[in-house]
């Protein structure tokens, strides 16, 4: 059997990455870090520190003004548009502002990644219904986003991000609009996904959440990233135990 390094390169590598919007100041300055496969990180930092901007670089919505990003072992600036699209399908994103489509009901919003991937309708029906039930929205499946409360919309956004079991999940303040009990439940959903092999980054300024779950942090301050604790100690015991079960998923990477 191959060693882990052979078959799964780092999920993300930032190398001297800087970002500025148009002619504005640098929001991110010379950032370098690595995210290993199956790791779970919090991204912390005050409002305006650049969390959303950094995540946008990760989900290939923005390009760095300087430096290089490698995703799943490939340099992003060398990728063709088609390859980028392919990689985006392996990333789940919970947007801070949800970005649900108002012309689709809850079910169809969550089904979107599966439909883009060309899954069978029968499978889609099964998986989407299960997941929506899990996040407590079985009664709202046919509701449109505008008919739902903020917390319900947020759960739909989360369901859409995880429905296709992405290799990398990026969640931008995913628990900002739900009560503590639901926040915990959603964190367990992420943990569950993490066990199955998904690398997870949760941006948050919810201090309680960070304290409750002992995951390493990417801390953003004044444009710089600090890894707390330092990189290399980010594997959970859980992940190691479940390595056997994950082989299938790893081979997909």
């Amino acid at each position: 059997m191959n060693t882990k390094e052979d078959i799964s390169p780092n999920i993300v590598e930032f190398n001297g990455v800087s970002l500025r919007y148009n002619k504005g100041p640098e929001i991110l300055k010379d950032i370098s870090f690595v995210l290993e496969p199956r790791s779970f990180y919090f991204m912390t930092g005050e409002s305006g520190a650049g969390k959303t901007s950094l995540l946008s670089l990760l989900y290939l919505h923005l390009e760095p003004t300087r430096g290089r990003i490698r995703l799943f072992g490939q340099a992003v600036d060398m990728m063709s548009r088609a390859t980028k699209a392919q990689f985006r399908r392996q990333i789940g994103v919970v947007f801070q502002d949800y970005r649900l489509l108002n012309h689709l009901n809850a079910f169809d919003n969550v089904a979107l990644p599966l439909r883009l991937a060309g899954e069978k309708e029968a499978d889609i029906k099964k998986h989407v219904s299960e997941l929506l039930s899990w996040v407590g929205l079985e009664k709202q499946m046919k509701s449109y986003p505008e008919e739902l409360a903020g917390g319900e919309q947020q759960r739909i956004a989360i369901a859409r991000a995880v429905i296709h079991k992405p290799t990398l999940l990026l969640a931008d303040e995913p628990t900002g609009n739900v009560d503590d009990a639901m926040a915990k439940r959603l964190m367990y959903l992420f943990l569950e996904l993490n066990k199955l092999g998904t690398t997870i980054v949760v941006a948050t300024h919810n201090v309680g959440l960070v304290k409750n779950f002992h995951f390493p942090q990417l801390h953003l301050s004044e444009g710089h990233v600090t890894q707390v604790p330092a990189s290399g100690t980010s594997y959970t015991d859980m992940a190691a135990k479940l390595l056997k079960r994950e082989e299938k998923n790893v081979e997909k990477i």
Binding site: R81, A82, A85, R88, R89, Q90, P113, L116, A117
Partner: peptide
Amino acid sequence: HILDLVHMLGAKDLY
């Protein structure tokens, strides 16, 4: 907004 989203979800240009 629809295009931006499906693009981010990995829809290819040709699709």
